Each structure stands twice: as structure tokens, then as C-alpha cells.
Computed example of a mutant assay.
Amino acid sequence: MIPVSVVIITLNEAHIVGQTIAKAQLISNDIVVIDNGSTDDTVQIARRNGCRVYQKAWDGYGANKNKGIELAEYDWILSLDADEIPDDKLIASLHQLVLCDCNQVYDIKFRSYIGKKQVRFGKWGRDHHVRLFNRTQVKWMAAQVHETLLIPKGVKRERIKGNIHHYSVKDVAELQTKSETYAALNAVKYYGEGKEASMLKLYVSPVFNFIKNYLFCLGFLDGKAGWQIARTTFKHTHLKYLLLQKMNNSKVAKKVYIQKKFAIEY
């Protein structure tokens, strides 16, 4: 084991969280699970596998990840979602690290899937994130959507070998549902920030994002899956600005009720 705490956020992830925990146990003896009201067997699976489980109210992605960081035993944090599974190459790389510089963060390559099909191209195929860091220097931005790590200037980044396998959605229907959920969340966020939905954002940005994903990033090489992702990205971009326009036109922020699901990032 290495002096790293693995922090996992969960909500109704009984179908996969056991696999994530099994890999996490090869990394650390401290696995913290922040559960946000699961109604399936997620909590029982986590406790049965020796995790420290805390059930917390939902305050947003970044805020809830920070709750887990605060409860961790070690200062070094490996942050995972319940549907993100480290592979053996990454685990070996982690065991080789000398974690002596708190001003260092580690960037990890992601492999993303629709169901069991790996998406190799498009934006998904290029996905990578900083997920290993020292909590004395780095925290999550307390955002409802698209949580981002607040990394101070001067902190060094290093890419490490291995991958996190992200089983984000079971099928295209779930992809579309999560995309709509994120569009609503983003619209509320943008409204709160005083942003406007210009004609450029409404009509040009969706087309640009489609072309970038499908052509420039070679999404078409993923066949049907690449087309579905690019099309969903188009719809997501248009919908979030359409909802923002409606909010701004009404001069009143619409309270958007959304189902709490951990969604993919675009």
C-alpha cells in the first residue's frame, strides 16, 4: 500500500462500485466513500469491502468531493467516481511514485466507454485529468457542475503511465439523458454568473463542437458511437444556451429540477 487515500463519490452505483473498490484496495488501505442517497446496494457493498462510508447531502460535485478529501487519512488523494476503474498498469505506476513533493500533481489518461465499447477517438478518446494530488495544496472548486481542481501557480504536473477506465453510460439513451441533465445544470450556472446566450453561442457553437468532435478529433473513426457522441454534443451545447436564453428573457431564474445522476463531462 502507498500513503494515498482513495476518495469515491457514489449514487446508486451497485452495478460497478465493487469493481472500482477492488482496484482501489490494491492502491490504498484508506478508501473513503461519500454516498449521496443511494437507494440500491451501493452503501452495503462499500461497507462490506472495508470502505469508510459517509452519507452526505448533495451540495454539488466539487463540494461533495471536498467532503471526502477532508475525511481522508492521508494528504495524498486519488479522486475517483464510482464508475472509474484504475487498470493494473496505473496501479503499478502509483506504487512506483515517490510522493515527497506536495507541489506536484499527477495527470492520468482516461479510456471511456459506451456500455462495453471503448471510444477511441473524438474528445472522449483524448480525455485525461489530474486525479492524484496533495490536499494541502489542491482542492476541488465547489461547483454544482463541471467540477474543476483549483491548482495553484507553480504546482508541477506529471503524466503517469496507465489508465482510468470510465464506464460513463450504459447506452445511448443514458448518454442523451445525462447530456440533457448537464445542459440544465450549465444553464442555471451560467444564469447565476450573468452570462448571455448570444446568437453565436446558440447556433454557431453547437455546429463548431460537432465538427471539432466528429472531424477534427477523428470521432468518425469510432463509427456509430462517434456519430452519436458528436450529435449529443451538438444537442447539449444548443440546449444549455437555449435554456439560458429563456431564463434571461423571463428575467427570473427558473428553478430547474433535475435527477441527481453523476454525469459525463463534455
Results as ranks from 00 to 15, higher is better:
Ile2Tyr: 10
Ile2Phe: 09
Val4Lys: 10
Ser5Ala: 12
Val6Glu: 01
Ile9Gly: 06
Leu11Arg: 15
Ala14Leu: 05
Ile16Arg: 10
Gly18Tyr: 07
Thr20Leu: 08
Ala24Trp: 04
Ser28Gly: 01
Val33Trp: 00
Asp35Trp: 08
Asn36His: 06
Ser38Trp: 03
Thr39Lys: 14
Val43Ser: 02
Gln44Asn: 07
Ile45Tyr: 03
Ile45Glu: 07
Gly50Trp: 03
Gly50Ile: 06
Gly50Thr: 06
Gly50Glu: 06
Arg52Asn: 13
Arg52Ser: 15
Arg52Phe: 09
Arg52Cys: 10
Trp58Tyr: 15
Tyr61Ala: 15
Asn64Trp: 05
Lys65Leu: 14
Lys67Asn: 08
Ala72Leu: 05
Ala72Phe: 04
Trp76Cys: 10
Ile77Thr: 12
Leu78Thr: 07
Ser79Asn: 11
Ser79Glu: 07
Ala82Leu: 08
Pro86Val: 07
Asp87His: 02
Asp87Leu: 02
Lys89Leu: 09
Leu90Asn: 02
Ala92Pro: 00
Ala92Val: 08
His95Gln: 13
His95Ile: 01
Leu97Asp: 05
Cys102Lys: 06
Gln104Met: 06
Tyr106Asn: 00
Asp107Trp: 01
Ile108Lys: 01
Ser112Ile: 08
Ile114Pro: 12
Lys116His: 08
Lys116Glu: 13
Val119Pro: 14
His128Pro: 00
His128Gln: 01
Leu132Thr: 03
Thr136Lys: 09
Lys139Val: 12
Trp140Ser: 09
Met141Gln: 15
Ala142Gln: 12
Ala142Trp: 03
Val145Ile: 14
Glu147Cys: 05
Pro152Lys: 15
Lys153Met: 10
Gly154Glu: 10
Glu158Arg: 02
Glu158Gly: 02
Ile160Ser: 01
Gly162Glu: 04
Gly162Ser: 02
Asn163Gln: 05
Tyr167Pro: 01
Tyr167Met: 00
Asp171Ile: 04
Asp171Val: 03
Asp171Ser: 03
Val172Tyr: 07
Ala173Ser: 06
Glu174Pro: 02
Leu175Tyr: 10
Leu175Trp: 09
Gln176Cys: 12
Gln176Met: 15
Glu180Lys: 15
Tyr182Val: 13
Tyr182Phe: 10
Ala184Asn: 05
Ala184Arg: 08
Ala184His: 06
Leu185Pro: 03
Leu185Ile: 00
Val188Asp: 13
Tyr190Phe: 15
Tyr190Gly: 10
Tyr191Trp: 13
Gly192Phe: 02
Gly192Gln: 11
Gly192Glu: 12
Glu193Pro: 04
Gly194Tyr: 09
Glu196His: 10
Leu200Gln: 03
Leu202Ile: 05
Ser205Leu: 13
Asn209Ala: 08
Phe210Gln: 09
Phe216Ser: 12
Phe216Leu: 15
Cys217Val: 12
Phe220Ser: 09
Leu221Ile: 12
Ile229Gly: 05
Ala230Arg: 10
Thr232Leu: 07
Phe234Val: 01
Lys235His: 07
His236Ile: 03
His238Ile: 03
Leu239Thr: 12
Tyr241Asp: 11
Leu244Ala: 04
Lys246Arg: 15
Met247Asn: 09
Met247Leu: 04
Asn248Gln: 14
Lys255Tyr: 12
Val256Met: 15
Phe262Pro: 01
Phe262Gly: 06
Ala263Lys: 00
Tyr266Lys: 04
Tyr266Met: 02
Tyr266Cys: 00
